[in-house]
Amino acid sequence: MTDFTVCHEQNHKITELSNVFLYLIRERSMCDTECARNLFFEYVSRVREHMEKVDAQICGHLIQTQDRDMTNTANRFLAGSQEIKRIFATYVRDWSDERRRELRIGDHDAFVRDTNQVFGLVMDRIQRETEHLYPLVRKLEQPRPASVA
């Protein structure tokens, strides 16, 4: 059984962190605060953790089915996941030093633009998971009625 409660909690927390961080960074001086750094790195950690969980548990579960549509959907999500992870890693590398847990913002306007784009990409992914992946797993996990002989 897939624990959708955990996935939904992760989605909610990622959305909350995203909304607060995007609001906070509109003001350049706020980008240099400890609060902004902590929000940023918590967001990064939670997005990575969530994507790994969805890829391994949900997509992995769907790929093992005999249903071609479910397998194809899971494979599309996994392919998209690789691209999102690549874009996300580039964004994190461009705008932060993870080892030191510091943000490196030389061009505030570019940082805000890139952040909006990448965070939007993550939010779109979460919405697609909720609308397309989770219903498939629920369908798969529903008890099947006994066949009449």
Rank of each mutant, 00 (worst) to 15 (best):
H8A: 04
L78Y: 01
D109F: 07
F41E: 02
R144I: 05
V148N: 09
Q82W: 08
V118A: 02
G60W: 04
N38T: 14
R28H: 10
S18E: 04
R144A: 14
C7N: 11
H132F: 08
R37V: 05
M51V: 06
D69M: 07
G80C: 09
E52D: 09
E42G: 03
Q57V: 10
E52S: 09
R99M: 07
F119Q: 03
V118W: 00
D32V: 06
R99V: 09
I63Y: 05
F88D: 06
T5Q: 14
R128M: 12
E102N: 06
N19D: 15
S18V: 00
E83Y: 05
Y134K: 00
C59F: 02
H50D: 05
L136A: 03
M123E: 11
P135F: 03
T130Y: 07
V112C: 09
E83D: 10
V118R: 02
T115H: 02
S81F: 03
D67L: 07
L78W: 01
R138H: 01
D114F: 01
A110C: 05
R113S: 12
H108K: 01
M70I: 04
Q64T: 07
D109W: 04
A79Q: 11
T130W: 03
K53L: 13
V112K: 01
L22V: 04
I87H: 10
R26V: 06
V44M: 03
E27T: 05
C31V: 09
R104H: 13
K13L: 13
T130S: 14
P143Y: 06
R76K: 11
Y23F: 09
D107G: 02
H12N: 11
Q82L: 10
T130A: 14
E16Q: 12
D67E: 14
S147Y: 11
V137F: 02
Q82G: 10
A89F: 03
A36K: 05
M30K: 10
I87W: 04
E27V: 05
E129P: 01
A149V: 10
N116G: 15
M123C: 09
C7S: 12
E129T: 04
E16A: 12
V20E: 12
P145Y: 11
A146D: 15
I126F: 07
V148C: 08
E98K: 14
L62T: 05
R125E: 03
D114S: 13
Q117E: 14
R76N: 10
V54S: 10
D69H: 06
V118C: 08
S18C: 09
T90R: 10
T2C: 05
G106D: 15
H108W: 04
R26S: 07
V20K: 11
L78G: 00
D3M: 00
E141R: 04
K139T: 13
T90M: 09
I87D: 14
V92H: 01
